[in-house]
Design a protein around this nucleic acid. Structure first.
Lengths: 152, 152
DNA sequence: CTAAATGTAAATAATTTTATTACAAGTTTG
DNA sequence: CAAACTTGTAATAAAATTATTTACATTTAG
């Protein structure tokens, strides 16, 4: 497994921070409620987003703010912030190929570059989608729903 | 986590079948030795590859053969054969967003399409790399090594 | 000072993945 | 046919990863 739920949780968090800005007091507990996970998970992810310069928070201080324009936050920024890049990436190589076997001893060398190409292309895809678009679509979906309610 | 070691194991297996064709008696145990995993894992993956029409094996019969030209087997074929497609794909959505929250209730709708685009682009990347290229590079790496030995 | 938030660590639980054991069933060979 | 070997598969155990929970320190606002 390589892309944890932490990624979609992070996107959810950023969207909620933007959406509830000025409307509600946004705390880790509030966000945890919206996301449906434990507040500690939210705080850990918020810490990652803070370290990445995406949000601003500080101990004791209530209130979470977005630092960057959501047009300038891409899925890649979030993916990287969550720590998916430092690890092994998308692919998980089996760890004990037999070095005494010609294939086992050389497959890693033959595969790594190709897997890296795919990883890079994947990251390029992530760079094409902004949080702004997610937020816009979320607002639209909410508006559509609310309209339906008024009609009925 | 989404792409298991089964993917690289499958690539390893196909490469080994091709490489040892005619040289060694290739069995699940032999392959397990090269890959460094349990023979049962190899058999399960072989079963997937068989179902996908990539290799031919049958109970009792010793000898595994590639059915398709390795030029026509892409990473995507392997990825699909291993069962990565039927599942949830690359991304793992957090499962309990709060439906009572405007964001929690609509984020899924706003995100799904975008994640699907990335998934599709990822699969397109996989389609660009053939097993033939992996096998060629593996043979090359083996040859380079053997040459080094002779020089020393 | 008190209340409320974030920041973290540690222990537990849950989930997923891999390994192992065991045996059934089909082939081949002698 | 019998023996040896192989794939096919189920069931259980072990290992690794992820998520949850509890607890408490730290910081800020009122």
């Amino acid at each position: 497994m390589q892309i944890t739920t932490r990624f979609t949780i992070a996107v959810h968090i950023i969207t909620a921070i933007d959406y509830f800005n000025g409307k509600e007091k946004v705390t880790s507990s509030f966000l945890a409620e919206s996301v449906g996970v434990n507040p500690v998970i939210v705080r850990e992810i918020m810490g990652d987003l803070k370290a990445a310069g995406i949000i601003a928070i500080s101990q004791g201080k209530s209130g979470i703010e977005l630092v960057k324009d959501t047009r300038d936050i891409t899925f890649y920024d979030v993916y990287k912030a969550i720590g998916c890049v430092d690890g092994e990436g998308l692919f998980h190589f089996h760890e004990r190929p037999n070095p005494m076997c010609p294939v086992g001893g050389h497959i890693h060398k033959a595969l790594d570059g190709k897997l890296q190409i795919i990883q890079s292309e994947f990251e390029d895809s992530l760079k094409c989608i902004t949080l702004y678009s997610v937020i816009a679509d979320t607002r639209q979906a909410i508006a559509d729903d609310s309209e339906l309610l008024h009609l009925s």
